[in-house]
């Protein structure tokens, strides 16, 4: 590269950066009005008060918070104030305290708007943007429908140090799949997330895999050498596996359980 060309590139870059900063200056400093972007969970005009101040009114929640997975990021010092603990999700609390508290009074509630959850959980935001997802970004659901952000167990409804019961959150809406069957699919004992990604997936019905690999990771078995057929259980499956996934081919259609058939065909 010639020295002249290098100089022209450097000059262009410097000019571009200068123009960028001048444009910023002209829009931020060159006016008399003081306006700023306020994004959740920021609260305009409020300052941070610390977890202890929240504890005066929200005692049960603050008491159990140290056991929460969210407390993994909470350092109780001045340097971390606002970036972890209550106010990292709910916003600075000084005005809320001054107003005597109250739902939505100078405070952000991620239970109504999941924006502050997505500030950190960007990998979940990406999943909610896939074609198959639960409608959180569409504001038809929110994170606390399935998660407890304060307690010990993230996967249970609100409350304390106790643990979630299996599939408890999913069963609240998906009763058809989580109900009692005469012949249950034993995978239900492992939990719904054994087959589904509840945030979002590239696959229909939020399946973690779309084809028979989903089933075969548990149902594969040693094949008889040279038999020429693929056995699952006591039945040959070579032909039926060509027709699609285990349930798509119209065979094991009752994947969550069946009232009459131990093979879950109907």
């Amino acid at each position: 590269m010639s020295q002249k060309k290098l100089h022209s590139i450097c000059g262009g870059l410097i000019t571009a950066v200068a123009a960028f900063w001048i444009s910023l200056g002209s829009t931020s400093c060159g006016t008399t009005t003081k306006v700023a972007i306020v994004r959740p969970p920021e609260i305009e005009g409020a300052s941070f008060a610390g977890n202890d101040a929240c504890s005066d009114c929200h005692t049960p929640i603050v008491d159990v918070f140290p056991s929460s997975p969210h407390a993994r990021f909470h350092m109780d010092d001045q340097r971390s104030i606002g970036s972890s603990g209550c106010e990292s999700c709910h916003g600075p609390g000084s005005l809320h305290i001054k107003a005597g508290g109250g739902k939505g009074i100078f405070i952000h509630n991620p239970g109504d708007d999941s924006a502050s959850c997505m500030e950190c959980h960007q990998e979940i935001h990406a999943k909610f943007s896939l074609p198959n997802h639960h409608p959180v970004l569409e504001d038809l659901m929110n994170c606390v429908d399935c998660h407890d952000p304060h307690g010990r167990d993230m996967n249970k409804p609100q409350g304390g140090l106790a643990f979630a019961r299996l599939n408890q959150s999913c069963a609240e809406c998906h009763q058809e799949q989580a109900r009692t069957f005469v012949f249950e699919h034993e995978a239900m004992r492992e939990g719904c997330t054994e087959c589904h990604d509840p945030h979002g997936s590239v696959n229909s019905k939020m399946l973690i895999q779309r084809d028979s690999n989903l089933c075969l990771k548990c149902h594969s078995q040693i094949q008889f050498p040279g038999s020429g057929d693929i056995f699952i259980g006591k039945a040959p499956h070579s032909f039926s596996m060509q027709a699609g996934s285990c349930w798509t081919a119209g065979c094991h259609t009752q994947v969550h359980g069946s009232m009459v058939d131990p093979k879950m065909r109907f």
Binding site: N213, L216, Q221, S238, M241
Partner: peptide, 9 residues
């Protein structure tokens, strides 16, 4: 999967 049959899956 353990059944890695090139024809069917």
């Amino acid at each position: 999967s353990g059944i890695n049959d090139n024809n069917t899956i």
